[in-house]
């Protein structure tokens, strides 16, 4: 459960000057895989993720989640947004339980789970804080807890740490590694940060812009469990050199 299949997917945004954001993209993600989507700004990473999330319709091709065509958003695909997109009028606790609550899940079922997730992301002491009282990193942790509390079969993350300062970003990457290690959910992770992509994923799909295409897929076989200490290992540096070389080829 949690498998993804993009088959020759294209996406054109209509308009006076229509934009072909994705062109003939094929991508397969197996159960429990952690796939990073790496590419420069504007190459169509968000577009691809939004299609899988069900926020947008594809123009061409087929998109299957767990073997069924994606038609609309749903709690089986938890999304973590770049700016967290928490409800500013709800405290941390109510943001986290929003999903199960509106789905009519019994309290006895979601409350222990929400409490456990808040502990997992280190926010059990901030259940009553409003989003605005939190730092960017803490808001993002709420965003992750709120997605995970729904028991999604896939986690879709769109540059979730892109707006954080370097140090917070490192601690969030470690947190995500730990959380993923215990839950093993399928993850599609969008980023423009090469280090982040190598550190987190089993496989990196490198994208190019105009039209948006996946130009190369690089398996990352660094041993797990990983930690941010891996960032300086020789294997890591070798991957990075390889991808940087690839980038140059793409850009010139």
């Amino acid at each position: 459960m949690g498998t993804v299949l993009f088959q020759n997917v294209s996406k054109t945004f209509p308009g006076v000057r229509s934009v072909r954001a994705l062109d003939d993209v094929s991508l397969q993600i197996g159960e429990g895989d952690f796939v990073a989507l790496l590419g420069p700004s504007g190459c169509g990473k968000s577009t691809l993720l939004n299609l899988l999330a069900g926020f947008d319709r594809l123009s061409d091709g087929a998109l299957l989640f767990d073997g069924r065509p994606v038609t609309r958003p749903g709690p089986d695909r938890g999304v973590v947004f770049q700016e967290a997109a928490l409800f500013p009028w709800l405290d941390v606790w109510n943001n986290v339980i929003f999903g199960p609550k509106v789905q009519g899940v019994p309290k006895s079922e979601y409350e222990p789970r929400a409490r456990e997730l808040l502990r997992l992301v280190g926010l059990d002491a901030f259940a009553e804080a409003l989003p605005v009282q939190l730092s960017g990193g803490m808001r993002q942790r709420v965003g992750i807890a709120r997605a995970l509390v729904m028991n999604p079969r896939a986690l879709l993350m769109d540059e979730p740490f892109g707006a954080l300062d370097a140090q917070t970003r490192l601690s969030m990457q470690q947190l995500l590694l730990d959380v993923w290690e215990t839950l093993g959910t399928t993850v599609l992770f969008v980023t423009h940060d090469i280090d982040e992509a190598i550190l987190l994923s089993d496989r990196i799909c490198v994208m190019s812009a105009r039209p948006g295409r996946i130009v190369r897929t690089i398996p990352i076989t660094l041993p797990r469990p990983r930690s941010i200490a891996s960032l300086t290992s020789p294997a890591f540096v070798a991957y990075k050199a390889d991808i940087l070389a690839e980038m140059n080829v793409v850009h010139h």
Partner: peptide
């Protein structure tokens, strides 16, 4: 984005 978040949560 808030609307999308709510949609995503069912």
């Amino acid at each position: 984005m808030l609307i999308r978040a709510a949609l995503m949560m069912g």
